[in-house]
């Protein structure tokens, strides 16, 4: 029984993806640049992420909160159809995101999503 339990958990772990920040975005062509900048910010800070396109029309904040809940690191980023970005943490109330910004702030939002994971103060974003 006990060994069975252990086996199950190990199998579970293998199925799970490696811990990442989750980026959920509306798949419109204009968001290509925004995603690239977000990814650059996260990569520069050395934090892994995965990007998931989302079909239904939601706000950046709703996307970010869903992404944070899906992330093993508890940090999610949402990008709405206009390219606005939002960074959220799974432990925060849904209506209170950590950060939000216009499309021009995408690189900085990537940096700060990563810093939320690493636990260092946010970078001042130049837009």
């Amino acid at each position: 029984m006990l060994s069975g339990d252990l086996h199950d958990r190990r199998a579970d772990r293998e199925k799970r993806t490696r811990p990442t920040v989750v980026v959920r975005y509306r798949p419109v062509p204009a968001n290509r640049r925004c995603l690239r900048e977000l990814g650059a910010g996260l990569e520069e800070e050395g934090v892994p992420f995965r990007a998931e396109p989302v079909g239904e029309d939601s706000t950046a904040r709703e996307l970010a909160y869903g992404a944070a809940l899906a992330s093993d690191l508890d940090v999610g980023v949402g990008v709405d159809a206009a390219g606005n970005t939002c960074v959220h943490h799974a432990k925060l109330p849904p209506e209170v995101p950590a950060l939000a910004g216009p499309p021009s702030a995408a690189r900085g939002m990537g940096h700060n999503a990563a810093r939320l994971v690493v636990g260092i103060p946010f970078k001042t974003i130049d837009q």
Binding site: H89, K91, L92, L116, G119, F122
Partner: peptide, 27 residues
């Protein structure tokens, strides 16, 4: 140390019900 708790100078921790503002994060 997180959105909900701070570590004091003497090492004790204090917890909050409301999240701390983002500009306080990790500061």
């Amino acid at each position: 140390e997180s959105f909900f708790h701070i570590r004091m100078e003497d090492g004790t921790a204090r917890f909050f019900d409301e999240p701390l503002p983002p500009d306080a994060f990790a500061r």
